[in-house]
C-alpha cells in the first residue's frame, strides 16, 4: 500500500454529483445545473476542426465560463490514447491546454487504454494488456501529464469487449501498481466493471477487495446495451439498479471519493428527454450519495 500518497492525507469528503456535457445543448445545461455540483466535459467532443485548425468550441467555452460558482468543471478525455505503444496524442493535450487556460478545472481524467496505433485512429478504445511493459509506459506518461497540468489526474478502467491475453497482473493489481508508482488516482467506471463481469467473467467482489479504494477519486455510472451476448459501453440509458447498488457500496469504502458522475451520450438526450435525465440525477443523488 502507498504511504505517502496525497490521498492518504486528505480527510474524508462527502462525494458530490456530476454529469457529462458535450456542448451544443444549452437547454440540457440549464436542466442539469440546478441538480449537480460538477459538470464533466470531454475536450474531444467540444472540439471542432475548421479549415484544419482544431480548437474547442467558443460557444461551449462561453457556456462553461457562465456556470454558477458552486458548480466546478472536470475534464474527461477520450482521445489521449495514453496506452498507444508509439505515442500519446499531442493533439488532445493541446485541447486540454486550451480548456485549462479558459476555465478552472478541478481535476482531469483519461481512460486506461488506447485509441490509435501508429497514429491511425482505431475507431474504438481498447484496454491495455496488463504487462510490465505497459505499466512502465503508462506510468512514465502519467508522470509527464501530472507535471504538465499540476492537477489531480485520474485513470479510468475500460470495458473489455475483446478477449484479454494472459496477464502478468490481475485487473486490480495493475491499477494498484499504477497508483503506487505515480500517485495518480482512479476513476472507477462501475458500468464498465459490470460489462467485464458479463463479457469476461470478472470476479467483481474479488476485484473490489483487492483494489486500493483509497485511490478512487471519482465514479462513473452509465448504462448501455447488450448485443450478441456482450454488454456494450455506450452511455445511452438510465442506470440499472445493480449499478447503483455497486456504486453505493464503493462510496462507503472510498474515502477520497469526490464525485459520482452520470454519463450520457449527447445522442441519447433527445431519446430520453430532459425530464428523464433530471429524474435520473435525482435518483442517483438519493440512492448513491
Amino acid at each position: 500500500m502507498p504511504t505517502e500518497r496525497a490521498v492518504d492525507r486528505v480527510s474524508r469528503l462527502e462525494p458530490r454529483l456530476a454529469t457529462t456535457y458535450e456542448g451544443r445543448d444549452p437547454t440540457l445545461l440549464e436542466t442539469v445545473i440546478p441538480l449537480v455540483d460538477y459538470v464533466e466535459v470531454v475536450p474531444d467532443t467540444i472540439a471542432k476542426s475548421i479549415g484544419g485548425v482544431r480548437s474547442l468550441s467558443a460557444d461551449t467555452l462561453s457556456q462553461l465560463r457562465a456556470l454558477p460558482n458552486r458548480v466546478s468543471i472536470i475534464a474527461h478525455g477520450v482521445g489521449l490514447s495514453i496506452g498507444s505503444y508509439d505515442a500519446y496524442s499531442s493533439d488532445y493535450l493541446h485541447l486540454l491546454d486550451q480548456l485549462q487556460s479558459d476555465v478552472d478545472l478541478a481535476w482531469h481524467s483519461e481512460h486506461l487504454g488506447y485509441t490509435t496505433v501508429d497514429g491511425v485512429n482505431l475507431g474504438t478504445m481498447l484496454p491495455l494488456p496488463r504487462t510490465d511493459e505497459a505499466l512502465e509506459l503508462v506510468s512514465q506518461r502519467v508522470m509527464e501529464i501530472q507535471g504538465r497540468y499540476g492537477l489531480p489526474f485520474l485513470l479510468e478502467n475500460v470495458a473489455h469487449v475483446l478477449p484479454t491475453p494472459g496477464q502478468a497482473y490481475s485487473p486490480a493489481a495493475f491499477l494498484n501498481a499504477l497508483v503506487e508508482g505515480t500517485g495518480c488516482y482512479l476513476l472507477l467506471d462501475i458500468y464498465n466493471l459490470e460489462c467485464d463481469v458479463q463479457n469476461h467473467d470478472l470476479d467483481l467482489d474479488a476485484f473490489l477487495d483487492e483494489l486500493n479504494l483509497n485511490a478512487v477519486w471519482e465514479l462513473h455510472l452509465a448504462n448501455g446495451v447488450e448485443h450478441r451476448g456482450l454488454q456494450l459501453d455506450v452511455h445511452s440509458n438510465p442506470t440499472r439498479q445493480s449499478t447503483l447498488e455497486i456504486a453505493r457500496d464503493v462510496v462507503h469504502h472510498a474515502p477520497a471519493l469526490r464525485a459520482v458522475t452520470f454519463e450520457l451520450l449527447s445522442q441519447a438526450v433527445p431519446v430520453l428527454g430532459y425530464h428523464a435525465i433530471a429524474d435520473e440525477l435525482r435518483r442517483i443523488r438519493e440512492e448513491v450519495l
Partner: peptide, 27 residues
C-alpha cells in the same frame, strides 16, 4: 501467432468490435 490472437481472430467479440466501430462511424 499465439493462442490469444488465434482466439480473438475467430471470436464474436471481434465481430462485435467491428460492428460497434461501424455504427459509431455511421452515427
Amino acid at each position: 501467432d499465439d493462442n490469444h490472437l488465434q482466439s480473438v481472430a475467430g471470436s464474436v467479440n471481434l465481430e462485435v468490435t467491428r460492428e460497434v466501430i461501424l455504427e459509431w462511424r455511421r452515427l
